[in-house]
Design a protein around this nucleic acid. Structure first.
Lengths: 143, 143
DNA sequence: GGCTATTATGACATCCACTTTCAACTCGGA
DNA sequence: TCCGAGTTGAAAGTGGATGTCATAATAGCC
């Protein structure tokens, strides 16, 4: 899984004539070994702890590259920060966002996806992607 | 409809000990007589055309007030601007956002809402609100 | 209609999360 | 090893949102 994503990114880098660098490797490692849904800053601070001479701009640019390479996806949950999550090939899921503790769970529901497709096609709309987020209280915060 | 919202806002203003001002009336008129999903800036420019001495900050603050009063809702569609849409009492709907022309259509689907509720409850999650957006090409842009 | 306390306004400053710039540095092929 | 092209990181720039503050307007009370 982790290995597969490294391969995808390595291929992407090669194919685009980009270079493999220490920073990119470090950032990729940090990204893949993290909880999902990190903000740029969270990842930056995490990396910074071990490698003090890594720049914010590099983390920022590298995450963009991950997104282009298809191993990460940009997300906005309304907290003012862009977050990145790992994506597997063709994989998609939606989110349950806790408004109290900020935790983010994922879910998938095939039926909902189908209904979305129906809504869209009945209006001549062609879906490229979608986002579905449920905001509320997670199990632990309800207690 | 328009009248009802004016009433709601007037009551809100009265109840909070706020004042009724020319600007607020103008902004409310402009807001209610617009396409939905205006950004602060769009509304500001639109108003500015007729009333050159109205400030951006006032539009910004007034829209926040509308949201508090329950006649508007803040939305983010990832274009970097906060948009506001009109809301009727208890009303909810989702969006089809065209990635080419930026147009935004609305839709409702009761079955999807029910499925969302099921997903949530099966995980002990309590939904407060949700957002569902389908991004893609609208009918006209597909041609 | 005046008075006054309170709230609102608007020009401007500031914040914040990126995003770009640019000189120095690194990578990889010849 | 050399060189051209890509990369890095500190710092400056952006753009939208939000805060500041002196001035203006409003509502309630004579």
């Amino acid at each position: 899984m982790k290995r597969a994503k490294k391969k995808i990114f390595a291929d992407f880098v090669a194919q685009r004539g980009l270079k493999s660098t220490k920073q990119r490797d470090l950032i990729l490692d940090g990204f893949l070994s993290s909880d999902r849904h990190l903000s740029i800053e969270e990842l930056y601070l995490k990396l910074r702890a071990k490698h003090p001479n890594i720049g914010y701009a590099t983390v920022y640019r590298t995450l963009k590259l991950f997104a282009e390479a298809g191993i990460a996806r940009e997300m906005q949950f309304g907290d003012g920060q862009t977050r990145y999550e790992q994506v597997g090939e063709g994989e998609h899921h939606d989110h349950l966002v806790c408004t109290r503790c900020g935790s983010i769970e994922e879910f998938e529901n095939e039926t909902i996806e189908q209904l979305q497709a129906e809504v869209a096609s009945s209006r001549g709309f062609l879906i490229e992607r979608h986002r579905l987020e449920l905001y509320g209280l997670c199990g632990s915060c309800r207690k």
